[in-house]
Simulated scan of single mutants.
Amino acid sequence: MKKILITGAAGQIGTELTTYLQSIYGDDQVIASGRHEELHFNAIYEKLDVLNAGQLVEVIRRHRVDSVIHLAAILSAKGESDPEALWQINMNGLYNVLEAAKATSVSVFTPSSIAAFGPETPLDRTPQVTIQRPRTIYGISKVAGELLCDYYYHHFDVDTRGVRFPGLISHEALPGGGTTDYAVHIFYKAIETGGFICDLEPKTFLDMMYMPDALRAIVELMEASPTKLAHRNAYNITAMSFSPEILAKEIQKHLPNFKMAYDINPVKQAIADAWPNSLDDGCARTDWGWKPEYDLPAMTTHMLKVLGAKLRPASTP
Score class of each variant (00 low, 15 high):
Asp207Leu: 00
Gln128Lys: 14
Val184Lys: 01
Tyr188Lys: 13
Ile271Gln: 10
Met208Thr: 07
Tyr210Gln: 12
Pro166Leu: 04
Ser241Tyr: 05
Phe187Gly: 03
Asp213His: 09
Gln128Cys: 15
Asp199Asn: 12
Asp199Ile: 02
Phe258Lys: 09
Met222His: 01
Val184Trp: 01
Phe156Asp: 13
Val163Leu: 15
Ile137Phe: 12
Asp207Met: 02
Gly167Glu: 10
Tyr235Glu: 00
Ala190Gln: 04
Glu245Tyr: 03
Gln252Tyr: 02
Ile251Tyr: 04
Gln269Gly: 05
Ala234Arg: 10
Leu215Thr: 11
Leu229Val: 00
Lys259Trp: 00
Tyr151Asn: 04
Asp181Arg: 08
Phe242Cys: 11
Arg216Val: 04
Tyr151Met: 04
Ile237Leu: 00
Asp150Gln: 13
Leu221Gly: 07
Arg135Gly: 09
Glu223Asp: 02
Thr160Lys: 11
Asp181Thr: 07
Ile251Ala: 04
Ala190Asn: 05
Pro212Tyr: 14
Asp207Asn: 11
Ser243Glu: 09
Thr160Tyr: 08
Pro244Gln: 05
Thr160Cys: 15
Thr238Glu: 06
Val143Leu: 12
Asn257Ser: 11
Phe196Glu: 00
His154Tyr: 15
Ala190Pro: 15
Met240Asn: 02
Ala144Arg: 09
Phe196Gly: 02
Lys228Phe: 03
Arg161Cys: 05
Pro226Gly: 06
Gly195Arg: 13
Ala144Asp: 12
Leu148Glu: 14
Val267Phe: 01
Pro166Phe: 09
Asn233Glu: 07
Val267Asn: 11
Pro226Phe: 04
Ile197Cys: 10
Met260Glu: 10
Asn265Gly: 05
Arg232Phe: 03
Val163Glu: 08
Gln132Asn: 14
Gly162Pro: 14
Glu250Gln: 15
Cys198Ala: 11
Lys142Asn: 12
Asp213Thr: 13
Ile169Ser: 13
Lys249Glu: 15
Tyr151Gln: 10
Thr136Leu: 02
Ile197Phe: 02
Asp181Val: 01
Tyr138Asp: 04
Asn233Pro: 03
His254Ala: 06
Ala217His: 08
Ala270Glu: 06
Glu146Ile: 13
Ser241His: 15
Glu192Cys: 09
Tyr235Thr: 03
Gly195Pro: 02
Asp213Glu: 02
Glu250Met: 08
Ser241Gly: 11
Phe258Asn: 04
Thr204Ala: 01
Phe258Arg: 03
Gly167Val: 06
Asn233Tyr: 09
Ala217Thr: 05
Ile197Asp: 14
Val158Trp: 13
Val143Trp: 13
Glu220Met: 12
Asp213Tyr: 08
Ile169Val: 15
Asp159Thr: 15
Tyr210Gly: 12
Gln132Gly: 09
Thr179His: 10
Tyr262Pro: 02
Val267Arg: 08
Gly145Ile: 06
Phe187Ala: 06
Val184Thr: 15
Gly145Asn: 12
Gly167Trp: 10
Lys142Glu: 03
Gly139Asp: 13
Gly178Val: 03
Tyr152Glu: 08
Arg232Val: 05
Asp157Ile: 06
Gly139Lys: 07
Ile271Cys: 08
Ile251Gln: 04
Tyr235Gly: 05
Met240Asp: 02
Glu192Pro: 10
Glu223Arg: 09
His171Ile: 06
Met240Lys: 00
Thr204Leu: 03
Asn233Phe: 06
Glu245Ser: 12
Ser241Ala: 13
Gly167Leu: 06
Ile246Trp: 06
His171Gln: 15
Glu250Ala: 14
Gly145Tyr: 12
Arg161Ile: 11
Pro175Val: 01
Gly145Val: 07
Ala230Trp: 08
Thr227Trp: 04
Leu174Tyr: 10
Ile140His: 14
Asn236Pro: 05
